[in-house]
Design a protein around this nucleic acid. Structure first.
Lengths: 194, 194
DNA sequence: CTGCTTCTATTATGATCATAATATAGAATG
DNA sequence: CATTCTATATTATGATCATAATAGAAGCAG
């Protein structure tokens, strides 16, 4: 049947959103197209009306999820929320316990490293933008120094969150998060609004 | 046919080693048992003479790989290699370009977070030991302070290496590694042998 | 040197995978 | 109002998945 115009775009976005959540929660390779489509209220075969391949979807998901994260961070920072607070939110039990709705990089970096070049190209561009947003908020230093610090800070946050998620002992996991916060704040140096 | 005693244990170890490399290189879910067994010079069905399930193998691989890493680090440190050097080795292009032979945590943490409790329990114990080895080499501070720093340091190293691997731009990747080294050294503070 | 035992191979299972061809409903277009 | 167009459904493809049952070959115990 033919649907009202705009329907296809809506459906496509729904597929991306559903896939985004499932990929982050269960890993890219662990999620089949059938599961994604069923969750989007469609069947198997409808997938190829929207994407050329699963890899195309993966690329789309990574791009939109990371761009969404960047937008959220920028909005927060523009509304006066400190970088310190953003770091504490990132390394919070709430974020740790919600991988499906959380940072796509923390959930999928290792997976990204194994994907074809086209996918990694798209991801790389989003990472550069994201790091730039963080760097702009860092106190003191040359542009290159701030950029370097932002990169390491992001690496610290991503790695720490992943460790906190992997470990099965709740107490240890909490301490991992706390250690990450301490180190992150030490790394960015004395900030105006602590 | 019946083989000389000890043969089974040898074969089992070979399976673990092959799986360890493949898991780190391609991700746990992306590697099938058939590929592992073929690479070990055996066929599909021989697997269940050695392991009860794929998950048992995963648990074994994580444990042995992380324990191996800890042993290597401890040996290095005991032979007078500085923590700084160990960090530089970890965040080197060589390590980045050899995921299959590198740190199992950098390659598989996110995967571990999605595994059943038994697997995560085994992994958690290995991580605690690993962090203890690092903490023992940190300068100054109380035991708890050193432990906290060691955790964050490991998180920083893991996350940075992952970012360097995911990004498709070689120059950016190199800069990510360099930023990670700078931040790591800053984090551990002034050390005796820089 | 015969027969038991054990490790591995062979083969089979049904499920699920990504991908694709065909079918159909119904809105858009004339 | 008839026709064309298209988003989705249905169904099928062959590959590969983890797991399992059966078979066979050879070291070792008697």
């Amino acid at each position: 049947m033919r649907y009202e115009k705009g329907h296809k775009e809506t459906t496509r976005q729904r597929i991306v959103e559903v896939a985004s959540r499932q990929f982050r929660a269960r890993g890219i390779d662990a999620v089949g197209l059938a599961a994604i489509m069923a969750d989007a209220g469609l069947t198997n075969g409808a997938f190829y009306a929207h994407f050329g391949s699963k890899e195309d979807l993966v690329s789309d998901v990574l791009t939109s999820a990371q761009a969404g994260r960047e937008r959220t961070l920028r909005t927060k920072l523009e509304h006066g929320i400190s970088l310190d607070t953003a770091i504490r939110d990132y390394l919070s039990p709430r974020h740790r316990d919600n991988p499906g709705g959380g940072c796509p990089t923390a959930a999928l970096v290792a997976d990204v490293a194994r994907r074809p070049k086209a996918t990694r190209d798209a991801y790389t561009a989003r990472i550069e933008d994201f790091v730039a947003v963080m760097a702009a908020r860092l106190p003191a230093g040359s542009d290159e120094e701030r950029r370097s610090k932002a990169i390491a800070l992001y690496g610290l946050m991503v790695g720490t969150l992943q460790l906190a998620r992997a470990v099965s002992d709740r107490g240890l996991s909490d301490r991992i998060l706390a250690s990450g916060v301490d180190a992150a704040l030490a790394l960015i140096g004395p900030s105006v609004s602590r």
